[in-house]
Structure formats: C-alpha cells, structure tokens
Amino acid sequence: MDVTPRPAPPEVPARRGSGGRGPLMALALVALLAAVGFLLVKQVGSASLYFYNADEAVAKRSQLGDRRFRIQGTYEGTATDVAADTIRFAIVFGGEKVVIEHTGSEPALFQPGTAVVCEGRWSPDGRVFESDRIEVKHSEEYKAENPDRVDPAAP
C-alpha cells in the first residue's frame, strides 16, 4: 500500500479547527436522529416481548411448547391453596382467562384487580400456566387512599 505523503486535494478544507467540521457534524446529527426515528417507528407497538398478554399466550400455546416465558393479565377472583406453597388463581386479558399455578412467594401488592406478570411455562397438558415468579405490574395511576375504606376496623 502506498502511504507516501501526497498533496491534499485543494478543495478539501483544513481538518483542524471549526472549519470543515460543520457539514460532517450535521451529517452525524442527521444520522443519529434518523436512526432514532426509525427505531421509534419500527418498534412502536410491536415490542421486543418482555411478556405475552394472556390472550396471545393462549393463541400461541402450541408454538410456545415448554418454553419459559412471561405472561401478563389482571388477577381476578381469589387465590386458593392447592399445595404447601402452591396457589392457584386466574388472570384475564383480552377476554381470555388463564389459570396460574404458582409455586413460591407472592409480592406484597398481589391483590385481586392488579395486573401481574408471571414467569414460567405451560403445563404439559396446556391447561394451566406453571409459574415460579410473580411480578406486580402496577398501573401508572395514583389516587389518594381513602382512609374510611382501607381501615374499616378503626375505632
């Protein structure tokens, strides 16, 4: 390779200082913004899936097989104990109801009406979702607590 010094073409501006940097910087910024914008358009609504909603998980039951994944839905009804540290409850999303059998502990905010994300897999017969980790996906709404309702037993 020929790396002997050769005269710079006259139309090329000096590399040093602020002169000549402007167009390149503009190019960089445009590239950055374009890429970020493209990312935005590309990814909105589609999702790298942190979880499947309950209805999607039901629709893809055969495809998911015994893979581990996370499932999201609203916890409805109440949980019953089915074994020493296993509880059974139902979550609902998009009109589909999924029965969860969870082994392990539950988070403090795990109450009926909250959205939960459970981690685990479909049972071999596909009837229940066997979970070993529950995360509560609380909403972005904040309401002042009503003292009358929360503590009815207070004197």
């Binding site: 940097r21 960089a28 590239a31 493209f38 990814q43 589609s46 790298s48």
Partner: peptide, 27 residues
C-alpha cells in the same frame, strides 16, 4: 425479523457516527 431491524438500525447508527467523527478521532 424485528430484531434484525434493530441490528440494522444499530449498524447504520455506528457507521454514520464513525464516518462523521473519524476525522476528529484521527487528528
């Protein structure tokens, strides 16, 4: 395919950044 899209974005971002700043880095 969606993940592939993300990879393409990343490659484009860094190629653009490199083209624009290599002169500064090489100075």
């Amino acid at each position: 395919w969606r993940w592939l899209g993300l990879l393409v974005v990343f490659a484009a971002l860094y190629t653009g950044l490199g083209l624009a700043t290599f002169g500064v880095l090489l100075e």
